[in-house]
Structure formats: C-alpha cells, structure tokens
Amino acid sequence: MTSKNAKPAIHALRMTQAGDSEVALRAVRDIGDAMGIPTVTVIDDLSSLSSLIGYRRDKPIFESNLPAKFRVTWNRRQYRLNNPVYLACRTESVPFIWRVDAEGWSIPVVIDAAQRRILNFAASFGMTGGICVPIHAPRGHIGCISFIGSAEHDLERILEEWRSTLIVAGVYFMRAHAQPFRQDALDGMRHLTKQEVACVTFAARGMTDKQIAIELDVVPGTARFHIENAARKLSARSRTQTVAIAAQLGLIGSVA
C-alpha cells in the first residue's frame, strides 16, 4: 500500500481534540496496517530517565499490540529505561531506521553490551528492525512512535514513501495525547509558590527533605509539605515526576 491509504487515519488524527488519546492511538495503528507493519508502540514521554520511571498512571506510556510474553519480560526487566531506540529519539529529529543485519545492529546511537542484549531480546521475538518517529514538542517534551518490523520488510523503501506522513502523524498524536498533560501542568505552574519552586529545585539536585530543610531553615515536614503541594498542582504522582514536570516547564534546570 502507499501513503495515500493512510489519508483516513491522518484525517482522524487531525480531528482529534485534547484528551483523545485512544482515538489517536487507533489511527496510528491504522497507519501501521497501511504500511504493512502492524506492530506499533507509542511512548508519550521519554525526555529523561525520570519521565520513564515516574509517568502519570492516568496518562500512561502506551505499548501497543506487542506479544503478551514479550511485554511481561520487557516490563519486569525495565528494558524501556535503557532501550537504545528510545535514546536515539532524544537526538534524532526525523524518522530513522533501526535493524540488525550481517554487520550487527544499525541504529543512530552507539550501543553498549547491555543495550545490545535488549535488541537481541526483541530479535528473539522476530523484531529485527523498524522505523521510529521521534516527536519533539515544546519545553523539551519528547515522544516517539515505533513501527516494529522484521527481515521481510524493505524499511528503506517504506520510509522513503511514508516519511512525510509519519512526521505529520507524530505531531498530531502528541497534540492529542500531551496537550491535557501540558495544560494541567501549566495551570498548576501559575499557582506554585516561591517556597514550592525552591523545594522542588533542591529535590532535583537529589537533596532529601532534611537537607532541603537545612538549606531553607525550616523543618523537614515543611519541605515535604511544599513538595507534595507542588506535586498536586502539577498533577504529578510522585516526587520523581514532580521534578521531571518542573524541569520540562522550565522551572528548574534539566534533571536528565
């Protein structure tokens, strides 16, 4: 099939509103079907290690239509934290190919032995290559759509035909999924106090409540109270995620 077959899916993505994540995900799956690569994963935020650990439970990282046995092992071993395909999305701005051939693994980042084991694990399920679409949104937000193929797919030809469609699909998907997250955080950011920003900033440096309390001349319970308030205002579910969201909103420096 050609990229013209994806017009209905692109139209569906274009018409999505903030919060239409499931609609957007179905459209992305339809694009994968039209490409002949139906195995698709979508990650909504991989901008830092913190974002992969502390993502919102109500706005989860999507891992679509992968074999159940694969998902169980992948999640148990926390392979997402060191997946070189995700890491490449942080530095690549256009769709790229990853695959294994006679020369070994080909991917736009240098990989170590641990990352090679991750790719070999995927290959043991027949996932020997794919096309990944990095998505760079405002304030450092990074997502990706990965179409996972095998040796039977002519990835160069597919990417040449579908490149523009994939870039557009990525932009519309992130708009549908990430906008509510951004708006919640932006609304909360306007109500953060100076004390809350200070405590989150110190937390980003790895300081404990006791250390923050010494720095600000307050008791540890007060420092913890300010961080919990900041988490609530930013719609975060953990201390780690509070720091990650604050960093993405430009309130503090990078904590990646």
Rank of each mutant, 00 (worst) to 15 (best):
L166A: 03
I145N: 00
A176S: 08
L155Q: 05
H177F: 14
A151F: 09
G149R: 02
R157I: 12
G149K: 07
F147M: 05
M174A: 12
A151D: 14
F147G: 04
H177L: 04
E160L: 11
L166I: 03
S146T: 14
A176I: 06
S150V: 12
R163V: 08
Y172D: 15
V168M: 11
L166T: 00
Y172C: 10
L166P: 00
E160M: 11
R163F: 05
G149F: 04
E160A: 15
L159W: 12
V168Y: 06
L155S: 03
V171E: 09
I158C: 01
F147C: 04
S146I: 11
R175L: 10
A151L: 11
E152I: 14
Y172L: 09
R163P: 00
G149A: 11
E156I: 13
I167K: 13
D154V: 11
S150C: 14
V168I: 15
H177R: 13
E156C: 08
A169K: 06
E161C: 09
E161G: 07
L155R: 01
G170E: 09
H177V: 14
I167S: 09
W162L: 02
A176Q: 08
E152D: 15
E161F: 05
I145P: 00
R175P: 04
E152T: 15
F147W: 03
S146K: 03
E161W: 02
D154R: 09
D154M: 09
T165C: 11
I158Y: 03
E160W: 03
S150P: 08
E152S: 12
D154Q: 10
E161M: 07
T165V: 05
E161Q: 11
L159M: 08
S146G: 07
Y172I: 02
A176R: 01
G170V: 07
A176Y: 08
I167D: 05
L159T: 14
T165L: 08
D154I: 11
A169M: 03
H153M: 10
E156F: 12
A176C: 06
L155I: 08
D154F: 12
E161S: 07
S150Y: 06
V168F: 09
V171K: 09
I158M: 11
S164Q: 10
I145S: 01
F173L: 13
S150D: 15
D154T: 07
V168D: 10
T165G: 02
G170T: 08
H177C: 09
R163Y: 06
H177K: 11
Y172M: 12
A169G: 05
S150G: 15
F147A: 01
H177N: 11
I148D: 00
F147H: 06
V171F: 10
E161R: 06
L155E: 04
Y172P: 00
F147V: 04
L166D: 01
T165E: 04
I158S: 02
E156R: 15
H153T: 08
S164C: 03
F173Q: 04
E152W: 00
R157P: 01
